[in-house]
Nucleic acid binder design. Structure first.
Lengths: 240, 240
DNA sequence: GTGTTAAAGTTGTATAAACAAGTGATGCAG
DNA sequence: CTGCATCACTTGTTTATACAACTTTAACAC
């Protein structure tokens, strides 16, 4: 799977930045030099640099150069930025985790669910409640709403492993876009029944809508996290 | 201030999407048609579409078209996505707000502050604590750390209006990149002294680092929000 | 009807070229 | 020394072209 050239250049530059071969606050080699180095056109180099800028590694300065603004995190917690499933996020941080399905039903979207999820009334869905354990502790409750016609054949067994793996490997669907909303909400009865909450009376709540490769929203999920194990990273460019 | 052509095309298309001239789930006109319509090259159109995709308005589907995935929010709260100051965010939602500076000192960064802010030890900074009132209610406490050599001449008077306005209009600095981290933390004594907290024992905390046009980080801020008036939106593309 | 092929239309990647615009250093006139 | 013009180098924008890869439809052979 040889990926696009600009992606290879992006990867190569990102590695060098993460390994501090290119250091914080320094300038990247100029576009002209990178063109020579990678034997490609200027557009291709610029595309790689654009991606680095999008992800907060560098910042271009007109007439001057491209400054490296990446600083390694001292990540005590695992990162949740970008689109990655909980399983991926945990694996990357080498933690052990399990999932328990505490509710699995098939529903038709009514008015109330429609307002929450934006699925049209009448859509056939799976509704799941899942508890996520990390290193044996119950930290997260997920409320998942999946479109049945896209996530067809979903079972509780699959949902205890990874729905996304099933989608991509078995059904050949691929996830492209996710929109998320972060809030903080009061603990509910379900929360305190299943999560070890310590003395917190609030939870970090991430509501997300996920779209497949055809631009169809097939998932609405509300993820309720115990506050002390929740971090959310974000990076933004000013549009000017 | 005639902006770039791709930006004009982006604006034009965004308006049409927001006004539902192009509707949710429909396909945009093909790139070829947009080239004719806007009398420009395909690259320029593609750049505008790329920006729309970045912001969650559309999603490209190879060989097929560009699908519109924008749905208007029923925004009860104001949005905090992208980079905008609290003042801009509130103005856009037509709410009245004020700021009170409860602490304004000049400091030199020591080891402890350096670990928190990533400013090097010895950096000269302003440290501020500010309470933000929206519609008369104290909702947010900001802890600001500004580099004195960049935000030169800052006063409490300015900080009660808008530091960013001062930076951009008076000092000619412009803000380009912001990195943020979202967490939920227990209420501190300072929090409960200044904020009307109801029965929450947690706060939504946004820690941010902001870079100026030269790629120099000049601000570290921790913003502590009362949970019931906090929302954070995000949009991500899967990298594949 | 079924399955295959072909064609047309779409987005994705890459190259090349030209000019605009900002930065910094150099050298020169005063 | 000061101020100004110039020049080399940088990133930013736009156009044009070619080909690759994917989707859908239509035509065709069987």
């Amino acid at each position: 799977m040889p990926s696009a050239k600009y992606d290879q250049i992006y990867d190569r530059l990102r590695e060098k930045i993460e390994n501090s071969e290119y250091k914080y606050q320094e300038l990247l080699p100029s576009e002209h030099m990178l063109v020579d180095q990678f034997a490609c056109s200027r557009n291709t180099v610029r595309r790689a640099i654009g991606k680095l800028a999008d992800e907060g590694y560098v910042q271009s300065i007109h007439g001057k150069g491209v400054r490296i603004i990446y600083q390694p995190y001292e990540q005590a917690e695992f990162m949740l930025s970008g689109i990655e499933s909980l399983k991926e996020a945990v694996a990357r941080n080498k933690k052990e985790y399990t999932t328990k399905v505490i509710c699995f039903v098939e529903l038709t979207v009514d008015d109330k669910i429609s307002r929450r999820t934006t699925f049209p009334v009448g859509t056939e869905i799976y509704y799941l409640q899942r508890v996520r354990y990390i290193e044996g502790e119950a930290l997260i409750i997920d409320h998942n709403y999946f479109r049945r016609d896209i996530v067809r054949g979903l079972t509780a067994q699959i949902a205890e492993k990874s729905v996304y793996e099933y989608l991509e490997d078995v059904l050949g669907e691929n996830i492209v876009t996710t929109k998320r909303k972060m809030t903080v909400e009061r603990v509910t009865e379900i929360d305190s029944k299943y999560l070890k909450l310590k003395e917190y009376n609030c939870l970090a709540v991430v509501s997300s809508m996920t779209y497949n490769g055809d631009g169809i929203m097939f998932e609405y999920t509300q993820s309720r996290h115990r506050p002390d194990c929740f971090v959310f990273y974000d990076q933004a460019q000013r549009v000017k």
